[in-house]
Amino acid sequence: MHGLVNRALQEFVKDTYGADIWGEVRDQAALPFDEFESMLHYDIRLTKLTIDAASAVLHKDAASLLEDVGSWLVSNPAQESIRRLLRFGGTTFLDFLQSLEELPGRARMALPDLDMPEIVLQTDTPGRFKLEIRWALDGMGSVLLGALRGMADDYGALVVLEAEPGREGAEIVVIDLLDAQFAAGRTFELDAQMR
């Protein structure tokens, strides 16, 4: 599993709960190093062990934990870069939703070896979307659910998000777009220096 994925998990724990808690997670997962490196690759078992350990140390089920990771990824000021990259997906939340299938391709433009989920977007009825997600590990649906919640705030859209049991290893997120322009949302300048 790409170091960026592991490091996101690590930085989330450190940023939200402190370095001591990360130390506990690391010990419980018996990681053979202090920190994940974002540009290295790790055995997927280490990623799974880290998720399980964090879940145990924080007394949170894996789905809630990963949902928090997803929200943190797009709303934490230190990760502004990720929010920006996602905002390239479109001018409105609807455009953004429809660009999600492109997300793995976009990520691979920058990092050809990044482990990205397979994403399929289906439109159920107008305003209702189903996101079908397949990944090497369970839980990417939860991460995306958290991230979508953060991005909806970013765009100023009012949405209801729900995880639904999927079939054959797929995870499903149901998105009800109630109001695309509910609030002002945050601005997005194409030019990074304008921030």
Partner: peptide, 11 residues
């Protein structure tokens, strides 16, 4: 291209 430029600056 802008997206790619920003992403590769990050990596």
């Amino acid at each position: 291209l802008l997206y790619l430029r920003e992403a590769s600056a990050l990596t």
